[in-house]
């Protein structure tokens, strides 16, 4: 078994299992803490608020966006770029198809490259802000930097392997992907799932009050 076969075979299965079980465990662990029923007579629907809260916080308020537009641009560029290149890049679709048998239309190569450019620009801006803003220096911890760097390296090795001509480069990418998957459930990368819980909790509380900030 070659290194690449190992990284794409047993190692990948293990990493993905840790990722999936860990993430489910963590989300379930949060939900399991439960909450007391709210006895105050509601003015509106908590359930509707849950969804509205989730949607509302996708879009910044203009008032604040004026102050932090660079950060917002970086955030959008990174997240949208990463989503597009993760889901619509031809090599990724081929990889998913190998395991699930599912396939969908890939972006043309230039579209995928463009998405990667956005993602890289965004991630670099976000990371650069993290170490050059006193507020960010105050609140950042090792996990923040580790998550940023791991994600960056996964993306970087992915782009270095774009020629798809060398197994070594593909193996490097896959190795980091595995590392990233293992790190994910124990880290703040989990915000990819917990964001919905937090937004929903606030949305539900406000929904009951008949409003939605």
């Amino acid at each position: 078994m070659t290194v690449l076969q190992f990284l794409e075979g047993p190692m990948f299965y293990a990493a993905f299992a840790i990722f999936a079980v860990g993430a489910i465990w963590r989300v379930a662990g949060i939900v399991r803490l439960g909450r007391k029923p709210d006895l105050a007579p509601p003015k509106g629907s908590a359930a509707a608020g849950w969804f509205k809260g989730n949607l509302r916080h996708f879009v910044p308020r203009g008032l604040f966006a004026e102050r932090t537009w660079m950060h917002l641009l970086g955030g959008y560029a990174f997240h949208l770029g990463l989503f597009v290149l993760l889901v619509f890049a031809a090599p990724h679709i081929a990889f998913f198809e190998r395991f699930t048998g599912l396939s969908w239309t890939a972006l043309p190569r230039w579209g995928f490259i463009l998405a990667a450019e956005f993602a890289f620009a965004g991630l670099i801006v976000l990371w650069v802000r993290r170490f050059s803003d006193p507020v960010m220096r105050q609140i950042s911890d090792r996990d923040d930097h580790a998550g940023s760097w791991l994600t960056f390296l996964v993306m970087l090795t992915g782009c270095l392997a774009l020629e798809e001509a060398h197994d070594a480069l593909r193996a490097l990418h896959m190795g980091l992907v595995n590392l990233w998957l293992i790190y994910f459930p124990f880290s703040r990368l989990m915000h990819a799932f917990t964001f919905a819980l937090a937004r929903g909790a606030t949305g539900a509380v406000y929904g009951r009050k008949g409003m939605n900030p």
């Binding site: 490259i113 450019e117 890289f120 620009a121 970087l156 782009c159 270095l160 774009l162 020629e163 480069l169």
Partner: peptide, 22 residues
């Protein structure tokens, strides 16, 4: 060298437009 070169070339090409923006 050929591995490094392939990686560098792809990386260089991909980051080029980002450099222009920056």
């Amino acid at each position: 060298n050929s591995v490094l070169l392939s990686a560098s070339l792809q990386g260089h090409n991909l980051f080029g437009p980002v450099f222009v923006l920056a």
